[in-house]
Design a protein around this nucleic acid. Structure first.
Lengths: 142, 142
DNA sequence: ATACACCCTGTACTATACTACAGAGTCAAG
DNA sequence: CTTGACTCTGTAGTATAGTACAGGGTGTAT
């Protein structure tokens, strides 16, 4: 029995502002829910999960636009399985990359903590070394 | 021999806008570099690494303020080892949490791809199930 | 000695993601 | 049947993180 919730209710449950819920609806991130005769929105509890997912994905550096793309990943009349799989695989690569970056930062923090334990106070920041990425950049002039 | 770079140079190397470099300086994320007699900024190449780190951390959902805190993690005259270690450990927890969230999303994407391979088209989005987090929320009224 | 690409400061504009009203209607309790 | 908490739409304001000039100086290649 999926309970019906007002906008104030889901906002509180998902720990977001009421206005944010309406904003996400405008942005197309939250489907427009059914209304009462007096135009009150009535949500099911999957909406709460959806709101939490959005918040969480944002904290991971996804923009609302990207989050919309993630949430839209489903097979339907307009979208074949193949297309969905391709998109999902691209997102997977993004996510894997983010995980790698976070692990690098984790490593740098561990190093910092370890160095601290040894009592050897530091000068330079270990983060800068933690990200040996595309160091090759072609210079067009001297 | 650490080469000396103008602002335009490091901006290009780090793939950011020149104005962004100056903005980070104002924000205190990038130390004010030495200047030539004619007030041109001259950077060493660690500045490029720093810019890249900032960009990367942003893509992981850290705000510039949080990035500043990360970059400030070092032992010096004002900050004891103990304090630095404590802060680093708190950041570690944040990072670990982010990694867990990303792994949940990764799992949901894998599920989606797998379901697709089985030819079973989907209705509901697997992400919503991927984040069984604080589901306990106390309600003060009925 | 002048053209062109570069740099300076300062201020103003932009995009994204909210957040806060104003003014009006709704609903439940006493 | 009214009071207080809630909801509605619409519009405007805010914070964060840039980005874009204007107006002026610099550096060097021809």
């Amino acid at each position: 029995m999926p309970s019906l919730l007002t906008i104030g209710r889901i906002a509180k449950l998902a720990e977001v502002n009421i206005e944010t819920v309406r904003y996400y609806e405008r942005r197309g991130l939250l489907p427009a829910p059914p209304r009462t005769v007096s135009s009150y929105r009535l949500y099911g509890d999957q909406s709460v999960a959806r709101l939490r997912f959005i918040k969480q994905a944002q904290a991971l550096g996804f923009t609302l636009e990207e989050i919309g793309e993630l949430l839209a990943l489903r097979v339907d009349a307009e979208t074949s399985c193949d297309v969905v799989r391709q998109r999902a695989e691209r997102k997977m690569a993004d996510v894997a990359e983010k995980i790698r970056s976070l692990q690098a930062i984790q490593g740098a923090l561990a190093e910092l903590i370890a160095a601290c334990a040894l009592g050897g106070p530091e000068g330079e920041c270990p983060f800068l070394a933690s990200l040996e990425k595309q160091p090759i950049v072609k210079e067009t002039e001297q």
